[in-house]
Amino acid sequence: MHNAIKWVILPLAVLLLSACTPVINRKLSPPENTQWVNIEITNPSPYTQPFPLEVRYISNKCQKKRISGFDGSVISEPSYGAVHVPMQQNGDIWSGKVAITGGGICKWTLSAITFGIEYIDATHMGKDLVLGTAVGATFAFEHSAVRNGVFEHLSNSDVTLSPIYYPVIKTNKLIRQNDSLHLFGKDDFIKKRMLNLSQTVNIKFNPVLDESKIVRMVAPEKHIVGEFYKIIYPDGTVVSDGSIHPDIRKMGE
């Protein structure tokens, strides 16, 4: 009987908490004196395109509340708000800007920005290819944004990145009938932590796409213990050791 009562009370506590928690106002209103992050991306191919900036803000003023799964206590945490910022095209150059101080009632401040490129057309690489994952970079602007991953700290407010990416065609009949086309590099998403936010930040992303070297990954057609992806490199080398990401060192870098 004790366990039954506990399971009834916990959802009720969640309902009461939800009723008492105010709706978070996620409207942004950058002040006139805010600093900006200017992002410029050079699109490396007519078959790729930068995706909209994925921006996350944090508010320590408008906190959200949740119940701890350990002891049922109420925990207050910062709130987050996400927004997609479309980029403006001028030939091969795409640009966008993001306010470091988002302002608004909740005094939003910039937490992180993710940007990059993705394939938008795969017809030149093969018939009926499904478009796959993107590549790019994530820039963190406050400490909680670096919890998931290793970020390089930067004090310079002007940053230029020129990573090299390659296409990889994946065959996995257990997931989909058609092959899929992806991009990969040394780091699919470069991670940087900006330390100096007292001035405008300028980020230039000039990726290079080398389609002369194509990697193929073929998954087993059945779930069999000890059977892994076969990764086939441009020089004909085949690796099947449990890796699920191509080794950039085998691309001649």
Rank of each mutant, 00 (worst) to 15 (best):
L12Y: 12
V239Y: 15
V146M: 09
A122C: 11
I169K: 13
F151L: 03
L17F: 15
N156Q: 02
W94F: 14
T237L: 09
P44E: 13
V215F: 11
G81F: 05
L53T: 13
Y80M: 02
I5M: 14
P78R: 12
G236D: 10
Y165T: 00
V37D: 06
P86H: 08
L195R: 03
K213Y: 08
V135N: 07
N3C: 00
I120T: 15
H182A: 02
Q199N: 15
E211M: 01
K6Q: 10
V83L: 12
F228C: 03
G96Q: 04
F228A: 01
I58E: 08
E211Y: 10
F115D: 01
F139R: 01
F51V: 06
G126C: 08
I120W: 06
S240M: 06
I231N: 11
M251T: 06
W94V: 02
L181M: 05
V208F: 08
P163A: 09
S95F: 02
P220N: 10
K107Q: 06
E227P: 07
Q177V: 05
T171G: 14
A145D: 10
D241E: 04
G236N: 07
K107P: 02
C106Q: 12
L197E: 05
N60C: 00
E118F: 05
Q63L: 06
S162R: 12
K170H: 11
D92I: 02
S76I: 00
T138R: 14
S243A: 11
I244R: 11
P31K: 01
S18W: 15
K250L: 10
M194F: 13
D235F: 13
M194D: 03
C106G: 06
G126K: 03
T114Q: 13
D241N: 13
Q88I: 14
F205L: 03
A145R: 12
I248L: 04
V14F: 15
N90Q: 12
L183F: 09
V37F: 10
A13E: 06
W108Q: 03
K192G: 04
N206L: 02
K64T: 14
D187V: 00
R176H: 15
T42Q: 05
K170S: 00
L161R: 07
M125D: 13
T48H: 00
P234N: 06
K222Y: 07
A4L: 09
N206K: 10
Q177Y: 15
Q35H: 13
F139S: 06
N172P: 08
D188G: 07
K27A: 11
I244Q: 15
L129K: 10
I105N: 06
K61R: 08
